[in-house]
Each structure stands twice: as C-alpha cells, then as structure tokens.
Design a protein around this nucleic acid. Sequence first.
DNA 1: GTTTTAAATTTGTAGGACAATTACTGAGAA
DNA 2: TTCTCAGTAATTGTCCTACAAATTTAAAAC
Lengths: 252, 252
Amino acid sequence: MDNKKRNFFELPDKVLTSLPTGAVKDTVEHLGKKIAHGDYATGAILPREDELVESLGVSRTVVREAIKVLCGKGLIRTARRYGSRVCPFDDWNLLDPDVIRWHDPESPQTARIYAEATDLRLIFEPEAAALAAVNANRNQRDTILAAARAIHPLDGRASMIGADYMFHATILQASGNQMLSQLQNLIYAVMLFSYATSLKTPPEEKVARRNHVGVAEAIDSGDAELARGRMKDMLVLNKAMADKLVASMFQE
Amino acid sequence: MDNKKRNFFELPDKVLTSLPTGAVKDTVEHLGKKIAHGDYATGAILPREDELVESLGVSRTVVREAIKVLCGKGLIRTARRYGSRVCPFDDWNLLDPDVIRWHDPESPQTARIYAEATDLRLIFEPEAAALAAVNANRNQRDTILAAARAIHPLDGRASMIGADYMFHATILQASGNQMLSQLQNLIYAVMLFSYATSLKTPPEEKVARRNHVGVAEAIDSGDAELARGRMKDMLVLNKAMADKLVASMFQE
DNA sequence: GTTTTAAATTTGTAGGACAATTACTGAGAA
DNA sequence: TTCTCAGTAATTGTCCTACAAATTTAAAAC
C-alpha cells in the first residue's frame, strides 16, 4: 500500500502523444526533440526525406507521416522543391503537450520559456485555486491535501516533485474548467525543468511544504479568497526563486 | 488606403495549420471538423481507411497522414485490427489552434467551451493588459488604440469583430509573454462564436467601444493598474452577456 | 543585361504488397 | 451451458515503386 501510494505521487514519466507506439511515433519524438532543442535554426532546412530515410532507417512513408504531425504542431512547414524548414518560434504551438515536453530541460535556452511559464502560472493558478475551493469534489479535496502533505524532502527529489505536480494538476482539474485544466502540461514542463536543475538549488522544502498545505486547507475549507491569496503568495515566492535561478544560468 | 486599413481589421478568415494546401490538409480539416462537431461520439470508431479512401476520393497515403495529424492533436487514437476511435474529450488538445477553430460555432455544445473560454479570458486578459501597459512598443500601442477606435457598428459586424480581435490579440502580443500570446487562438474562437450568434443579440456597441478605448488609453499611458482594472471591468460585463446568451441557447 | 525557356530537384499523391497485432469465431472440454 | 484455447480474419503499420506537381536553378535566346 505504501508502495502504491508512492507510485501515485511520482512524476508521470511520459505525457505521450496519442500516436501508437511504433516507428512513426519514434520518428516524431526524435525530430521533434531535435527541433525543440534548437539543432536546426529557425528557417533552416531539415534533411531531405530520403536522407532521413537513410539516417533513421525507416521508410519514406514513416518519415512523411512524422513530418506531417510536426507540421500540425507548427514546428515546420514544407514546400515542394524546397524541403521542410523550421518555422519561426512564434508559430510553434507552445501549449501543445508534446512541444512543451520536447524542450530540453538542460538547455539555458529553455530558461526563457521556463520564466514565461512561471509568469503565466502566477496569473492563472491563484484563480484556479479559488475555483477549486468552490467546485472540487470530496475526492479531489482529499487528493490535494494528501499531495500537499506528501511534499517533504525525505522521499527524495523525484517523488517530492511528483507530489508537487499532482497537487497543482489536481487543483486545475478541480477548477471545473477544461481549458484551464489543460494548462497542467505547462506545469509539467516547469516541473521537468525544475527537476533537472533542482540539484543546484538550495532546498527550501520545509517552507514549500507549509505553503502547499496552507493552500490545500484553504481549498478544503471552501474559502475561495483565502485559497487564491495563499496560492498567489506561494507562487510569488516561487517566481523569485525561479528568477534567481534563471539569472544564475545566464550568468555562467 | 482606406481599403487597406479596413482589411487590416478584418477577422482573419483562417488561422491555418502549417500544412501545405493540398489533399492532406483538406482531409485533416474535413475529419477534424466532423470529430469536433460531434459527428462521431467519444469512443466511436471512424470509418476504416479504405472506406475513407473511397468516400473522400483520396489515396490511402493521404488518409493515413491526415489521421496521424489528428492523433497528434489528441482527437483520435488508432490500433491495429481495431480502427481509429475518438478520444475522450479530456484528451483533446483544446488549446490547439486548429482544434479550437474546428468547433462548430452554431452548435449549442460549443456554448460550454465558449463559456469556459470566457472565464479563462477573465483570468488572464487583465494581467496581459497590465503587462502590455509596461512592455508594449510604440507600434503596438498605436495598433491597440486604432483597433479600439475602429470598433463601431457602422462598418457592420464583420469588421467590428475584426477590430475587436486585433485589439485583444495585440494586447496579448504586447505582453511580451509568448505563451500568453498564443492564447489569442482562444479569443479567436470566442470571436467566431460571437460572430455566429451576434445576429441574435441586441447591439451594445457604444458601450463596448467606450470600454475598449478606455483600456487602450490606459495601456498607452503606461498605467498598468488602470489597464488591468478597466480590462477586468470590461470582461466582467462581457461575461455577463455571454452567460445570458448561453443560458438562452440552452433554454430553447 | 533581361527575359524566356528548359531542366533538375524535392515534396505530394497514388497504389500494391506484406507484416504485425488483436478482435472475433468456433470447436472442444469441463 | 459455460469456459478455454487455438485458429482465422480483419485492420492498421511499414515498405516499396512510380509518377505528378511545383519551384528553384541553370541555360539559352534576345
């Protein structure tokens, strides 16, 4: 049971696209990551289809289907006689779960996205908490409370971050707004980044946990105003830490 | 010149996917709309590939590439020997520009999405306005002002809504947060819906215009607090109208 | 030098063949 | 009857070849 509970709060290792496992999926992941990692500059031409066929060891059918998927996410654009070129960053579907996930958590370039995501969280999560305080069902309130209490450093970083993700994701779900709920992909990206860089940051878990539990209790009690305020306070603190971290990354 | 200006504020007729024009794109659009319109229930099996080949008059290559794109957007999921079945609504990438656009503006089912989008706007647009007041460049401030002033009923609904969209989209862009900026797709969807149903609503354009200009001037003057407050007031009013409209739709 | 024409190249579409997987069928046993 | 298990059939997944369409590049004509 303990084991089960622990698994429950682990950071889901993959938020997969709905593509079936197979060559197409692998190719999409491979190319998607390369593009998101910046291996090809904006406007750069990807290798020709037959080159990809050779280098990836799959058929042209697979390569083409993969490229079409990436087009659908705004990463690339194809033209006859020209090739597939990488779209300007503005055109990327930044809120697509896959595109978010493909960003390299280790890259300093991702830091900007991370900072933007943190700003965005500061905007919508307090409101989500307020909505959750009103709309959450019994089950959700329990999960939020349990996740908040599970945030302690003794279990190691991985499960701590897992609980953290579950905490925030459940609040979004409990808001009752499906679009708001989908922004949990954004939180997932921040968590990934946070996990990749957490080894360098000083642990402030005790404070973090107290804050989380505070928010959870406010939601559980149904006090929307209190939940909003506490969530906001928590995220302001979070943003301060994030900004410091990003600054230090660019300083290197 | 007048003509050019008018075009500038017209609602862009298509926020296209990055797929090149052609059979694949058409097929994606066709199937995507059918699914988003609810022609296939959740879990329902789509016609087999060879049936689609026949009914759509394209090759299996095209059908397969289109289906893969839809998988990438979370609409469907495929399996050998089983077929392509429609994913539960929760799995759809609701923030994907295409998925948003494919919703049927005429359908009462869309009304719920519309209401959620309106709620979401109320959350992030006041903050976007505050950010824009600080970060917008000269050009953006001018565009926002011009768009706000172009919102008058004499030009007809289409261009009025076009200016409205330009107003909100530019504010998001001017916020300086790329993720925030991408939420303009959501506003686009609301505008489409609004346009489709606007014939039934009594015109309150004079008030609307005064509000928009107020926000624009606040942004132009660089007063973040004022911009936030005015945008919020405007959207609260907007939400009240939206709720009334949705209620009337379900009442029928 | 400029314009027009031709050629080469790259993606787009079509269609056939087989592989892999899994739902379904039916026979046999409990 | 009901359950198990093997076999069969059906559907998508992958590979392949051929040709069409478009567009850049190069050549040619003026």
